[in-house]
């Protein structure tokens, strides 16, 4: 038959009932997650953010700055790696901003809006792709960490719990940076908007140095801001120490970020027609 000819399957198709609607949403989210992951692998900048950059940071802090930094307990490399985990996934969430801004301004989102697909899939597919990427990044850093002398002091289960806390926190951040990306006029600006947010969060934090070494006016922020809380939680889980209060604080930050920023991102997405 002729390729362009209308065929019976072009008859109106809408999901019939809630179950069908859910199946569509899941299928569409999976389709877009795959598409976004392919993008992350094929775009050199994205690949750099999630592979070369964490290696550089590990080497930089382990061998260049590390000798000058003395954590209160244990070796610096053990202190450092939990911080690197959080810093890398936080930096990685910039990719959410850039990716969404790009889709929006290159007309891809417009095409998605004109397809009979679940509307939630655009944001869900983006944030879930980030989640998958962060799991890959976590595995990569674990490997590099072990190569430069990092050793888990607790148990494999506690280590994995630490990774879970970090990845879930990163998923929350993705929603925040999705909001940034949807608000930016283009992908370059999205990147420029994201970094001033990320820098204080990752560097004025417990990620690389003990907070006690900072000036007192900075310590308050550096101790209680979400990146530090999550870093300290991961440290406690991987290296030992009291964990329950920190775990609850981390989960509270994570939930808080999602509750506030996910609706903002969704609203922004709906409005940017």
């Amino acid at each position: 038959m002729i390729a362009g000819a209308p065929a019976p399957e072009s008859a109106a198709r809408v999901p019939d009932g809630l179950a069908a609607r859910m199946r569509w949403a899941v299928a569409d989210t999976a389709t877009l997650t795959t598409r976004n992951l392919i993008g992350y692998v094929r775009v050199p900048e994205a690949l750099f953010f999630s592979s070369v950059q964490p290696i550089m940071f590990v080497l930089l802090f382990r061998y260049v700055f590390g000798g000058a930094i003395h954590p209160p307990h244990g070796s610096y490399v053990n202190f450092l790696i939990p911080g690197i985990f959080v810093q890398t996934v936080a930096f990685g969430s910039v990719a959410t901003s850039i990716g969404l801004a790009e889709d929006l301004h290159k007309g891809i989102v417009e095409r998605f809006r004109a397809l009979p697909m679940a509307r939630s899939a655009v944001l869900a597919g983006r944030t879930i792709a980030d989640l998958v990427r962060n799991l890959f990044v976590a595995a990569l850093i674990t490997g590099i960490g072990y190569a430069v002398g990092f050793r888990v002091q607790t148990s494999a289960a506690a280590f994995l719990a630490g990774i879970a806390i970090i990845v879930v926190f990163a998923y929350a951040l993705s929603w925040g940076f999705a909001f940034v990306g949807l608000s930016a006029p283009n992908s370059e600006t999205a990147q420029v908007m994201a970094f001033p947010l990320l820098f204080p969060l990752t560097f004025a934090s417990a990620a690389f140095v003990p907070v006690q070494t900072m000036p007192s006016w900075l310590q308050g922020f550096a101790t209680h801001q979400p990146v530090s809380v999550v870093v300290n939680t991961a440290r406690a889980l991987m290296l030992g120490g009291p964990t329950s209060t920190l775990v609850w604080q981390s989960l509270a930050w994570t939930a808080g970020i999602v509750v506030v920023l996910a609706p903002l991102a969704v609203r922004r997405y709906r409005r940017t027609a």
Binding site: E9, R13, W24, A27, D28, T31, L32, R35, I38, R111, F112, L115, P116, M117, A121
Partner: peptide
């Protein structure tokens, strides 16, 4: 090909 497949999947074919 991946572009066409994506659009096809999003059309639930």
């Amino acid at each position: 090909r991946e572009n066409l497949r994506m659009v096809g999947r999003l059309n639930h074919l």
